[in-house]
Design a protein around this nucleic acid. Structure first.
Length: 579
RNA sequence: UGGGGAAUAGUGUAACGGCAGCACAAAUGACUCUGGAUCAUUUAGUCUAGGUUCGAAUCCUAGUUCCCCAGCCA
């Protein structure tokens, strides 16, 4: 069976990005970029960057930022760098670097040779710091963390100057050099910018530029024991890379004056910082902290648990990169907080999978169906269409026989109104096969239906009646003899609440965890075409939903499928409204 | 309580002084060898109060509500 995986990689250089530039309805960031291009502000260059800190796994919220940055570069003929903001060795690990690279690439973006690390700029940052000290705009401060906090003042009260604020340039130079050499213990001194302790913006009250941290860095090892703070480092990183538009999330709005102050003080190349609102999704927890909690407290099996909103989780769930990219496009970008309906993500998913996923038949809860007038031992290979939305996907053979399995839900002994499927005396179509009519029902002592008997009409081979008669329903099925056993894992939202934080006093989001978010179904049967499926292959199980092959299939040597998302189910809605 | 942001159908977004539009969701119908897909239709909105204007979602004034900031995190 062919993998539905699209191998087509999108490029962010030139015009062959995944999404064609659209001239209409630009969001506010693209409006700025387009205007800058028009006026030649950056010599008509467009250069963005995606700057993750390697301290966790990427999630769907990051995808919004990734698609924004890489997307803008692609649409405007610019470039986008992948840059790790690895300025805090106590939190960062190579494992995260690797996963982030894998995830951004999987999403379909390409940074060519522009993979950068903030840690590569440590020397330059240090030299810039010396420049600021010499200019009298930075000083070494001996206040403890606690004292620094007290000196900073409050939201409504100004801070007061550090007693070390007016050290001479020579003393600052000497102290900073000794900080770098490792003469002082962690936390004993900092290098701070000399700005204004009475500034209404707390970030401007002599912010810390460097802290002492005798800690080994995942890339620079023990070369440094002073590490730059975000505000000091980030603008320099952008400046060095000649970024034009430095796009970040809303909480950095308060930091923009500082971003600008540092770059102005250095007289360095100065990109424009633009802030946008991060993504929130209904029924979904999104913060790194909470996702880490889910993993550590074993509420999920790991970062790539198919219920997780991480990119590796979504990948394992069966999401396609194209679906996520399109989602990021349709949600738009703005400056106010909003929460996107998870149904929109699922819509984008179905839209893509409907076009691309090969159809196949699988029965999750098998009910034996015996065709009494079908020859014992006979097997027919019937033609089935692989994808009605894509003629080039072709057809395949599906084995048919006297004993079949159908879905338990597709039979009711006493069908209610609007139930169109099989019932005693009723005729339905078995997809791509024959019309069958239910003649008998076999029950176990407890009264459960365990087997049903039918007769078939040989004239309806392939699924069409020569006399033109209609049936109300078409059922999926598999051959009892030739189908394969499988396990299927059904997923539901991790949270039962639209807002996972909607809790009673004293509780947190874990109180809303959905105990039924994972349902494992064993004893499923799938058609033999699935015998050679590879991890992450995506399919539509006809009438059920989209599924993908779980990687456990390979390690455990048996077929295991994840339900990516169900088909739209109008019958379920009818049932709901009948209650 | 200081500073910085922001408010458009249920949700997400357009309209940049000139007919409030699109998508999702919801509902109805058509079609269908997937109760899928597709197609058509419907419901539903400018935070409030004033003002400017022939005309205001858009400009002005006042208010309301929400978000962010007191890490040697990013």
């Amino acid at each position: 069976m062919e993998s539905p995986e699209s191998r087509k990689n999108a490029s962010n250089d030139g015009s062959e990005g995944p999404d064609k530039a659209s001239t209409e309805r630009l969001d506010f960031i693209r409006t700025i970029v387009a205007e800058d291009n028009r006026t030649g502000k950056w010599d008509s260059r467009v250069h963005t960057r995606f700057p993750p800190e390697p301290n966790g796994y990427l999630h769907i919220g990051h995808a919004k930022s990734i698609c924004l940055n890489f997307g803008i570069a692609a649409e405007f003929g610019g470039k986008c760098n992948l840059r790790f903001d690895d300025t805090n060795p106590s939190k960062e690990e190579q494992e995260y670097v690797d996963s982030i690279i894998e995830d951004v690439r999987w999403l379909g973006w390409d940074w060519k040779d522009r993979l950068y690390f903030a840690s590569d700029y440590f020397q330059q940052m240090h030299d810039y710091a010396v420049q600021l000290i010499k200019a009298g705009k930075a000083y070494v401060c001996d206040l403890t963390a606690e004292e620094t906090r007290q000196y900073r003042g409050t939201l409504t009260r100004p801070g007061k100057d550090s007693p070390y604020r007016n050290r001479s340039v020579e003393e600052n130079l000497d102290l900073f050099e000794r900080m770098r050499k490792g003469e002082f213990p962690d936390g004993s001194r900092t290098l701070r910018a000399k700005i204004d302790m009475a500034h209404a913006n707390l970030n401007m009250r002599d912010p810390v530029m460097y802290r002492i941290l005798h800690e080994s860095h995942h890339r620079t090892g023990d070369a440094w024991c002073i590490y730059p703070m975000y505000d000091w480092a980030h603008g320099i990183e952008d400046s060095i890379e000649r970024i034009t538009h430095s796009i970040c999330t809303l909480e950095f709005e308060n930091h923009r004056p500082l971003y600008d102050w540092f770059l102005d003080a250095l007289g360095a190349y100065h990109p424009q910082q633009i802030e946008f609102a991060r993504l929130n999704l209904t029924y979904t927890v999104m913060s790194k902290r909470k996702l880490l909690r889910l993993v550590q407290d074993k509420h999920v099996s790991g970062w790539d648990d198919p219920r997780m909103p991480t990119l590796c989780g979504l990948r394992r769930r069966g999401y396609s990169p194209a679906a996520i990219r399109n989602f990021c496009k349709v949600i738009g970008v703005n400056k106010f907080n909003s929460t996107v309906d998870i149904a929109l993500l699922e819509h984008c998913l179905r839209e893509d999978l409907n076009r691309t996923a090969p159809r196949v038949m699988a029965v999750l809860k098998p009910l034996k169906l015996i065709i009494d007038n079908y020859p014992e031992g006979q097997i027919e290979e019937l033609d089935a269409i692989n994808n009605p939305e894509d003629a080039s996907a072709g057809t395949r053979k599906v084995p048919f026989g006297r004993k079949l399995y159908i879905e338990q839900e597709d039979f009711m002994e006493e069908p209610p109104k609007k139930f169109f499927r099989l019932a005693p005396g009723r005729e339905v179509r078995l997809r791509y096969a024959y019309f069958v009519t239910c003649t008998d029902v076999v029950k176990d002592p407890a009264g459960n239906v365990v087997e049903i008997h039918c007769t078939y009409d040989p004239a309806t081979r392939g699924g069409d009646a020569p006399d033109g008669r209609k049936v109300k329903s078409t059922l999926h099925w598999v051959s009892a003899a030739r189908s394969l056993p499988a396990e299927v894992r059904l997923y539901d939202g991790l949270s039962t609440k639209e807002n996972p934080e909607d809790t009673e006093e004293g509780q947190d989001f874990t109180a809303n965890l959905n105990p039924e978010s994972l349902q494992v179904i064993t004893g499923c049967r799938v058609e033999p075409a699935l015998a050679d499926t590879k991890p992450l292959d995506r399919f539509q199980f006809e009438r059920l939903g989209y599924f993908c092959t779980d990687p456990d299939t390979q390690t455990e040597g048996r077929l295991i499928f994840n339900r990516t998302v169900g088909l739209r189910d109008t019958w379920a809605k009818i049932q709901q409204s009948q209650k």
